[in-house]
Computed example of a mutant assay.
Amino acid sequence: MKQRECFRHELKYEIEYARYLELRSRLRTVMKSDPHAGEGGSYLIRSIYFDNYQDKALREKRDGVSIREKFRIRYYNDDLSLILLEKKVKDNSLCRKLDAEISEPECRQLLEGRLNWMRGHPSALVQELYAKMRYQLLRPRVLVSYVREPYVYGAGNVRITFDSRIRTTLYHRTFLEEQTVDISAAEIPQNRILEVKYDGFLPEIIRSLLQADGIRQQAFSKYEACRKFG
């Protein structure tokens, strides 16, 4: 299991398409495209989020609870050869992420409610999810999909991403389907979600570019946006 030793800062903004084009152009003068994005500069992310029957994670987000956690299963470009179980811990604008790789057969068993294999798994994170699925009744609730365009900057370990085409499945019990049936969850589809993540400090050159654009921080949650339909 990978674990960040320290919390990272995480800031989110919703920006209009024209502002996205302008800001992206300026950031490209100092930042590099994340090599994981490939030649196209972006990739598809799909995340299956967990919540309990009382929608604890959703309610805590809406109520502004400062310290909270979410479990999700994540994979990229519909490639099931790499599937990650992730736990994201938020403390106001700080976040820490823990993850563990699971196989496709393990993932399918988990999503079908067949959990016995998780008890003796070598990953402590898998064992933790097993306990919380048993005793907190966590269950997979929704599939969130979006396209991410990422950029990186070495100083401060800065990562800036633009997310678009946010889509959601209506509540159903089947995941990892051959064909995903979903709908747009964005109120203004052309807008982008800008995320800024960094370690101990945000370099002045990046800060000045963001401030020059006049954008304001917002508490945006893709999970919350995608749960409005069920």
Rank of each mutant, 00 (worst) to 15 (best):
G40S: 12
G40E: 09
G41C: 07
G41L: 08
L44C: 07
L44G: 01
S47K: 12
S47W: 05
Y49N: 03
F50V: 09
D51H: 09
N52Q: 09
R59F: 02
I67A: 13
R68Y: 06
F71A: 04
R72Q: 11
I73S: 07
R74F: 09
D78F: 10
D78M: 11
D78H: 11
D79M: 08
L80S: 03
S81T: 15
L82D: 12
K87I: 00
K88M: 05
N92C: 11
S93H: 14
R96E: 00
R96I: 06
A100R: 13
E101M: 09
E101R: 14
S103G: 07
P105G: 06
C107W: 08
L110Y: 07
L111F: 07
L111G: 00
E112D: 14
E112G: 15
G113Y: 03
N116T: 07
R119D: 10
P122T: 11
P122C: 09
P122M: 08
S123K: 13
L125I: 05
L125Y: 07
V126S: 12
V126P: 01
Q127K: 15
Q127W: 01
L129Q: 07
A131E: 12
K132T: 03
K132Q: 14
K132N: 07
R134F: 07
Y135N: 02
Y135E: 02
V142H: 02
V142K: 05
V142W: 05
L143Q: 14
V144C: 06
S145F: 03
Y146M: 01
Y146L: 04
P150S: 10
Y153D: 08
R159C: 06
